[in-house]
Design a binder for these strands. Structure first.
Lengths: 224, 224
DNA sequence: CCAAAAAGAGCGAACGTTCACTCTCGAATT
DNA sequence: AATTCGAGAGTGAACGTTCGCTCTTTTTGG
């Protein structure tokens, strides 16, 4: 009733016209509602610490209703860490089309750090990482999305390497691994929330990138 | 009886001489036994996921016995994360007496990474960080030990700064924060377990340190 | 020096609570 | 009329913790 009133595109609330769509639409809404509530609860209490009752309360829904959308607590955890990682991976890969290797890398990293800070998802990120240590499904998803980011970065760096734009001291695989570890440390610590301004983070991020990638002509301009 | 035989310094097993010591000694042993068992369980199942029964089984002890040593599960969690952080902090501070800033920093970091890898405590480290997001006692302990490391590092860098050995691009506070974030990222990822050899980690660690600290005379020798 | 009393350590069943999850049944939707 | 949805009481299992008890070690009083 209330739902029908809110979003009936043609205004024919009483007549059962839209047929296929309406139920599916509602399902999507409710699913999203549960995921939103669960995300809040998991940030607040952790994956293991949050109870289904807590999630139900947050979603304004009974357990019976909730279990129509997710078969288990674990399936919610999986859905959330999946979405979280997927979203991050996509965003990061999308940003790496800057022709300047240093700028592209630094900007992508900064955008990610900014987003995590703004959405307050640093806690969720940590939680996902901790859960990945023991839950195989979560770990698999985690690894998949990290590979996605890694491949995008590798492709990006490889092209710069072919152009002769960068001269890293180590092989590409090692370079990628350490660069990503660095990024994770920065995200985990959520530096902006500790009062470190973004410009300062960017400065050091850039200097670390320059040191590791050694792009043409940066030695004199930046370090000298 | 068996305990008396094992560690009676004067060999007067039957006479109740050592008086004060014996009980206290036993207490320490048992406490350590519980903490060891708990650590294993927490690595395996997480702080919230591990049950008291699981810890009791691992320690070869009944719940009743265990509760004579710790008043609650939370007190065990606190004791463990306390010890963990304390231990790391002490080790790291102790290593920073190398007169070469770069060598000292890199060696301290590498020693830490190596130790975490060998003891398989990367999972525990992640768990502590996740728990710190919601458990105030754990967070406080976490912050305290990080401040300890931070202060040791600050002192170390400040002295080098006074000598004119390094010329960082940013202020000391920011430098410290980002350096520590980098270190945490490396620990969290437990690179050695992913097949990255220590020498390679060291190479990139060193180049990042050089870039951020900019020690005298390194530009030509290492980068040129 | 030794019996008697007190204190401590350990066990494991049992406590009340909370957990993830299911069932039933009426209301709403198609 | 048929199907889906949702509420909420209810399920057994598992949780952290406690209790009553036995056995051992230490302290005490004569």
């Amino acid at each position: 009733m209330s739902v029908a009133e809110l979003d009936d595109p043609a205004g024919e609330s009483t007549t059962p016209r839209p047929a296929v769509t309406r139920r599916a639409q509602r399902r999507e809404q409710q699913t999203a509602r549960i995921l939103d509530a669960a995300k809040k609860c998991f940030v607040r209490s952790g994956f293991q610490g949050a109870s289904m009752q807590e999630i139900c309360n947050e979603a304004g829904m009974s357990p019976g209703a909730l279990y129509r959308y997710f078969p288990s607590k674990e399936s919610i955890i999986e859905a959330i860490s999946e979405a979280q990682q997927q979203q991050d991976a996509e965003m990061l890969s999308a940003m790496l089309d800057n022709p300047s290797v240093i700028d592209g890398f630094v900007e992508a990293s900064m955008a990610h750090i900014r987003k995590v800070h703004e959405h307050g998802t640093a806690a969720l990120f940590t939680e996902v990482r901790a859960e990945a240590m023991r839950n195989e499904m979560v770990r698999t998803g985690c690894e998949r999305s990290m590979h996605q980011v890694r491949d995008a970065l590798r492709n990006y760096f490889q092209k710069a390497l072919d152009r002769g734009d960068i001269r890293p001291r180590v092989d590409l695989d090692t370079l990628l691994t350490v660069m990503m570890a660095l990024g994770e440390g920065l995200i985990l610590n959520d530096l902006p929330s500790q009062g470190v301004p973004m410009e300062k983070i960017e400065t050091l991020m850039r200097s670390a990138a320059i040191s590791n990638l050694r792009p043409r002509g940066y030695e004199e301009q930046k370090i000298g």
